[in-house]
Design a protein around this nucleic acid. Structure first.
Lengths: 188, 188
DNA sequence: GTCTATATGTGGATAGAC
DNA sequence: GTCTATCCACATATAGAC
């Protein structure tokens, strides 16, 4: 049986994920994506009629990733352990965060300054995440507005720490803030 | 006496500040900047030989702004009041943050993905800020590593909240997180 | 479905008159 | 110092053969 080679569409999105994270969406050309995935440029247009279409597929890919992670976290019995796992992810990815920042954070920050549909379609990523976080704090007995505030605080702190790690090119910022937030959740 | 018209160089940087904040650096063309500041495109190159040179002037402008703010804050006798004023700035600017995000945060996040000098020159903005914050926490009696961690936490949370406000196009995220952080500083 | 060649538009940058 | 006209590189997108 030959090794499984992902279909071209997936390969294109895979390449786009890597390149966009490293270079940003606007600075990543379709020729870059075609080259990285070893698909001729003209052929790329068979799968994605415009660059925006590729952008949407990129966002869909992130949504899919998030749903997988969420399923893993939801398998844990304790909401506190779930939050801990969520925070730990930032510590685990600290080197990548130092190199290129948070995939979602930097993408939304970039795309929100555009005017087309892409500007709004990145929004839903954080929306899902915040709702899930809010649900965990509610399970810890917090009132609805209180839980919302804590969810925003936690996500803000992690996104900001990723931004700083990226700004300074140093994983320490992500690691240190993650450690602080883990203690914060433990003592809540 | 005729009204004071800022010299062309300043006008160009002023226009760049507005446009880059709204559209991002890469999507802001030199023609945009020339148009906004009513300077013919060819003439712009007399003041800035390359787009990167304009980018550096942009960063210098932000450094200047920050030094003015810092002088105001340092005039306050109490470090707790200084931190409070720092946080309050995010609440005051919440509508602007919802529209275009944090000027420094989104600029550094964008430029850090480039390879030239610009990528590193945006870094110093947060560096100055963190050092000042750390000094305030030290004045509150914290140990050096402790103060550093608190400074990172505070800046992270505010930058993350700005990112969320921008992502959702809603000032609430900035306002709510600022309120939470003011209570946090008060009770430290 | 695949791929080469190319059209089209745009943006940074320069030439050179004034 | 100022401004018009233009060059050139490059990125998105298309045409059309296979």
């Amino acid at each position: 049986m030959p090794p499984v080679i992902p279909d071209k569409r997936s390969r294109l999105v895979d390449a786009a994920v890597r390149l966009v994270h490293r270079q940003g969406f606007h600075r990543t050309t379709l020729a870059d994506v075609a080259g990285e995935s070893r698909v001729p440029l003209g052929n790329l247009y068979y799968y994605f009629r415009t660059k925006d279409a590729l952008g949407k597929a990129l966002i869909d890919r992130y949504v899919g990733r998030y749903e997988e992670l969420r399923a893993q976290w939801d398998a844990m019995p304790d909401p506190r352990a779930r939050l801990d796992a969520f925070i730990q992810m930032t510590a685990d990815n600290r080197e990548m965060l130092a190199r290129s920042g948070c995939t979602i954070g930097s993408l939304t920050s970039e795309l929100r300054k555009d005017d087309g549909d892409l500007a709004t379609s990145a929004t839903r990523l954080f929306d899902h995440l915040l709702q899930w976080l809010e649900a965990q704090f509610r399970l810890l007995g917090r009132s609805k507005p209180d839980a919302r505030g804590l969810a925003i605080h936690l996500l803000s702190a992690l996104e900001g720490a990723s931004l700083l790690a990226h700004n300074f090119g140093s994983a320490k910022y992500a690691a240190q803030e993650a450690a602080l937030l883990r203690r914060w959740v433990r003592d809540l």
